[in-house]
Design a protein around this nucleic acid. Sequence first.
DNA 1: CAGTGGTCTAGACCACATA
DNA 2: ATGTGGTCTAGACCACTGA
Lengths: 239, 239
Amino acid sequence: MTALPAAPGSLSERILFEVRARILSGEWPPGHRIPFEHELTEAYSCSRMTVNKALTELAKAGLIERRRKLGSFVARPHSQSAMIEIKDVGAEVAALGLAYRFEVLMRTTRRATRADRARIEVSSDQSVLAVRCRHDAAEAPFCLEERLINLAAVPEAADEPFEARAPGPWLLARVPWSRAEHRIRAEAAGRETERTLGLAEGAPCLVIERRTWSGKAPVTQVRLTYPASHELVARFSPA
Amino acid sequence: MTALPAAPGSLSERILFEVRARILSGEWPPGHRIPFEHELTEAYSCSRMTVNKALTELAKAGLIERRRKLGSFVARPHSQSAMIEIKDVGAEVAALGLAYRFEVLMRTTRRATRADRARIEVSSDQSVLAVRCRHDAAEAPFCLEERLINLAAVPEAADEPFEARAPGPWLLARVPWSRAEHRIRAEAAGRETERTLGLAEGAPCLVIERRTWSGKAPVTQVRLTYPASHELVARFSPA
DNA sequence: CAGTGGTCTAGACCACATA
DNA sequence: ATGTGGTCTAGACCACTGA
């Protein structure tokens, strides 16, 4: 085993970092059996719990696979997968260092139409609140938000004007969400979008749709439309 | 405390699930102090390590914040953030149940041009391999791949024809990556893209750019262009 | 059957932040 | 000074799985 750079904090973290470094550097390639727990216990002069904590975390991160009786093995990467973070629009603009504001363009309460029910899982006799917002960065249109809120799940929303806070953060502070589904795609701007965001005809837009549930109850569906200049960025390291 | 549904597996997992259920249900709202470790130790008749394991995981997932002397508190959600998974193109097509094939359209080795260096962090005297591929699903164009490979980091790539395996999986199996950066945006198709994917002029496309490093060395940069019909989908639950 | 990981215990010492 | 969490120990029992 070659020398390794110093590692941080606790002992179990150090073990985690050093094993991970050997995997990522290729010194321990996929399929390689890493030392048994009792061997690492000796190597680091510590108890098995400490080693186990590090290896359990590596296993949860998908870097190793553990098999009883056989040992722990460097995992073969299954998919070139990665994770990307999708932030709240206001926070996103603030992170860019730009002045943020939003304006509610439309706000209607209605029985769920057929189109609504395609967007959010409510029955036809339930009421939804439909909101359309424009988010601005540095006084320029930044994003169009089209949202449905299930009033059966969030009855207080019926009386909320969304003047101080945009619907997104308002809901976030109020309803604990347990599940979300995102869809991201490119789309040509429709007439409504062109007008609101000041785009040319058929300009490409980035569309993010998010549906949110609390337990089994659907809470909200939102469609965020950005001009093509907008980028989603994500940095990701394994584990 | 109200009754809770049965929970899985180990005791520490049960504790994790039950505390999380109370947070997600809103029974313990943001800012609420959850029981001290020694209280949960009593409630579950177990040792502190077992409780600590569950709470440490909740803290790492961002659901609670722990402060010495004060206790553990339900976190106020900072950003309406979520994670999305980006798979390998071949795996993606296979997951759709469609026949997959790919074709290498172009393959050139060259000293890094100015344009190359904007895409991947190499110096002007280093060589890169530029590859263009078309990925097909069910005999129809699915995705255009434009890739640069840093030959200083992956010299074997110079002699690889990418006939059996596409560059993505080939690299994945060969180079352990430690860091990746993704950018996702909408774009109007250029002339090259229109022709390769069979699109109309200026059709909106979803573009995913990924840069990958192994340690500090840049390995590859890839640009995947999809027609607008393509969607990225992600389901996400906290923790 | 033997050896691995999965989980838990009952204690311990320490750092840290409040009071 | 006190009480919390952060970490670790030195054992233990069990389940699984290959030989």
